[in-house]
Design a protein around this nucleic acid. Structure first.
Lengths: 159, 159
DNA sequence: GTCCATGCAAATGATTTGCAGTATC
DNA sequence: GATACTGCAAATCATTTGCATGGAC
């Protein structure tokens, strides 16, 4: 994914903010690594090589800013780090995101698209009067690779 | 909800652990406050009145232990605290839990039961080969009270 | 030139850990 | 009586913040 410098600059200007090299670079790292769920420190590490004089605090501040601008999303995998990923950008409907599959064996995190939740949301609306505007769904289990490995191992044990 | 001292003791013994007043009290606080999503510090505060000489570190250690024993669940509302609530105990099917409605206006957190996710899980299994064993679902939006207040306010503005 | 933004280092705050004393089995 | 558990205080570690300098407009 490519960051459009000019529209980013414009977006910042609307809020009285300035476009800086650091802000652009952080956004670019996230845009170039979709589905990677990077921590602030990981973003920092990827930037440091080309920009040795950037500070970790700036990454933290920038990531907050990008969240407020709704350019990126936050993911919490309960491992002590907050992670970030580039948002839908295209923005089909009202930002519906945060669908993650987390493998309990290899730790791999993948995303999935699913509209089945809309039925759930309208059910909640009718039954409880709760109007859903966003959701975060994490499914824990075993990814294809790990569950196939498991299966193979079980077969070998039977022999 | 009431804690069964003896079966708790037995459960601990199976793992070579001892039953202590502190462990019992922490479990009781959580059992007596279902749907309350207490932080470690909040649990500590509720215990301190009757047991002034308990330590916060013990609450943290106990809560970890109860998680491992699958007697309680962990909830993360991204507000900087990890929260805990008593588990299903009854345990209908394979521990399926963590369904929360989080109101963006008043911050109220409520839980809901919903089996509609099973359709989603089998969809994921077929499409991606990912075998789901547990899930955590957070729906963000506006609770009945807040969305009614909102509606009323909008009507008044029109007058 | 005016502010906003940055880098650095120090501060924060939830959670963890080491250790000597204490309670459970 | 052995061993696990607790309380306390110190340590940890991700994230935030104060402040003087630097950069965008």
């Amino acid at each position: 994914m490519k960051v459009d410098r000019e529209s980013f600059k414009k977006l910042l200007k609307e809020k009285g903010l300035k476009m800086t090299r650091q802000r652009l670079v952080v956004l670019e790292v996230l845009a170039e690594n979709p589905e990677q769920h990077l921590t602030a420190e990981e973003i920092y590490d990827r930037i440091k090589a080309a920009n040795p004089d950037i500070g970790l605090a700036t990454v933290y501040r920038t990531v907050q800013l990008l969240l407020e601008l709704e350019l990126i999303d936050r993911i919490n995998l309960d491992d002590g780090f907050v992670r970030y990923e580039i948002g839908d950008m295209g923005g089909k409907h009202h930002h519906h995101r945060h669908h993650h599959l987390i493998c309990l064996k290899c730790g791999k995190v993948s995303a999935f698209q699913e509209d089945m939740l809309e039925a759930l949301e309208s059910g909640v609306k009718e039954a409880l009067g709760f109007q859903v505007t966003d959701h975060e769904v994490k499914l824990y289990g075993y990814c294809r690779d790990c569950s196939e490995k498991e299966k193979k191992q079980n077969q070998e044990e039977k022999i």
